[in-house]
Design a protein around this nucleic acid. Structure first.
Length: 268
DNA sequence: TACCAGGTAAAAA
DNA sequence: TTTTTACATGGT
C-alpha cells in the first residue's frame, strides 16, 4: 500500500458518493471504507489518506488509471475561483469542497453504463448493470472486472434481455461491441467530433455522447443538457432553461454539472 | 395499483 | 417536419 497524492482539496468519501448512492456497484465496489476496482486484471483497493489516497497495489500500471478514476485531471482550483461570483456555485463549491468527479477509466464501459442508465431510475440502472457485470464480467476478490467488449460482442441479445435490459438496449450494447468504432481513439478528438462519431451509432444520442465527454474524457465544457436532473437543477436553482444555464457556465460546464447533481442528490 | 425515473429510435401525424 | 409511442425494472 502506498500514498498516491492528489491536488488539494480532495475529499475521497464525497468524491466516491456515486459508487454508493444508488445501491452497490459491482465494478466500483465500496467495501470496508475503501473503493475496490479491477485495474488491468488486478483488484486495487483505494482508501482515504492524508494528502490523497492509499492505493494497493500502486505501480506504473495502476497509477495512471487510478489517477484518472479519481478525476485527477480536473482543475478544481481554477473552477472554484471562477465559480466565486456565482451565488449558487459559490455555495456548492464551499459545501462540497474537495468533490472531484470520478472518471470512467474505460470508454466501452462508460458507454455501456450510460446505455443502461437511459430513461430508467439510477437504482434500476445499477441493479441491471450489476446483473450484466455478474453474468459477463470477471469476479476478483471483491470487485468484478467490467465485461470486456470482446465478451459482449459474443453475447446473445436474448441473454441481455434476461438481465433486464430492454430489447432495444440489448441490441445497442451488442452492436456497439461488434462495431468497427475505435472508442479509444476518441480521446484525442475534439468534442464535436466525439459527439458526431458517437451519435451516429444506434442507441447513443446526445445525452449519452455528452456524458461520455463528461465522465470518461473529462472535457471541461461537456454539458448533458438533456439530463432530467440537470434540467431540474437549472429550473430549481437558477430559474432558467438548461441551455441558457449551459451558456452561463462556460467554460466549466462539466464540473458545474457535477456540483449541481451532487446538490440534487443531497436534496435540500 | 399506478406512475415516474439522470433517453432513444421508430412510428404516426 | 414535428409529435407521439414503446420500452423494461425498481422505488414509492
Amino acid at each position: 500500500m502506498a500514498l498516491l497524492a492528489l491536488p488539494a482539496p480532495y475529499d475521497f468519501d464525497l468524491s466516491t458518493t456515486r459508487f454508493r448512492a444508488f445501491g452497490v456497484d459491482f465494478a466500483n465496489l465500496w467495501h470496508e471504507g475503501g473503493l475496490h476496482r479491477v485495474v488491468d486484471g488486478r483488484e486495487v483497493r483505494i482508501e482515504a489518506a492524508p494528502g490523497g489516497v492509499d492505493v494497493d497495489p500502486l505501480d506504473d500500471e495502476t497509477r495512471p488509471i487510478v489517477l484518472h478514476l479519481l478525476g485527477a485531471p480536473f482543475d478544481l482550483t481554477a473552477f472554484y475561483a471562477w465559480a466565486a461570483p456565482d451565488a449558487v456555485l459559490a455555495e456548492l463549491t464551499t459545501r462540497f469542497a474537495g468533490l472531484r468527479p470520478p472518471l470512467a477509466p474505460d470508454p466501452f464501459e462508460s458507454l455501456v453504463t450510460s446505455i443502461t442508465a437511459q430513461q430508467v431510475s439510477l437504482f434500476s440502472a445499477f441493479a441491471i448493470r450489476n446483473r450484466l457485470i455478474e453474468r459477463f464480467g470477471e469476479r476478483h476478490r471483491h470487485a468484478y472486472a467490467f465485461p470486456t467488449r470482446e465478451r459482449l460482442a459474443r453475447a446473445d441479445e436474448i441473454d441481455l434481455v434476461g438481465l433486464g435490459l430492454s430489447r432495444a438496449k440489448a441490441a445497442y450494447v451488442v452492436a456497439l461491441a461488434r462495431s468497427e468504432v475505435d472508442v479509444d481513439a476518441l480521446s484525442t478528438r475534439p468534442d464535436d467530433e466525439v459527439r458526431s462519431t458517437l451519435t451516429a451509432l444506434r442507441g447513443i444520442g446526445a445525452w449519452t455522447a455528452e456524458w461520455f465527454l463528461a465522465r470518461h474524457l473529462g472535457r471541461p465544457r461537456a454539458w448533458p443538457a438533456g439530463d432530467l436532473v440537470l434540467r431540474k437543477a437549472a429550473s430549481l436553482l437558477y430559474g432558467v432553461g438548461v441551455d441558457e444555464l449551459g451558456d452561463r457556465l462556460d467554460p466549466f460546464q462539466n464540473l458545474s454539472a457535477h456540483y449541481l447533481l451532487m446538490r440534487m442528490v443531497a436534496a435540500t
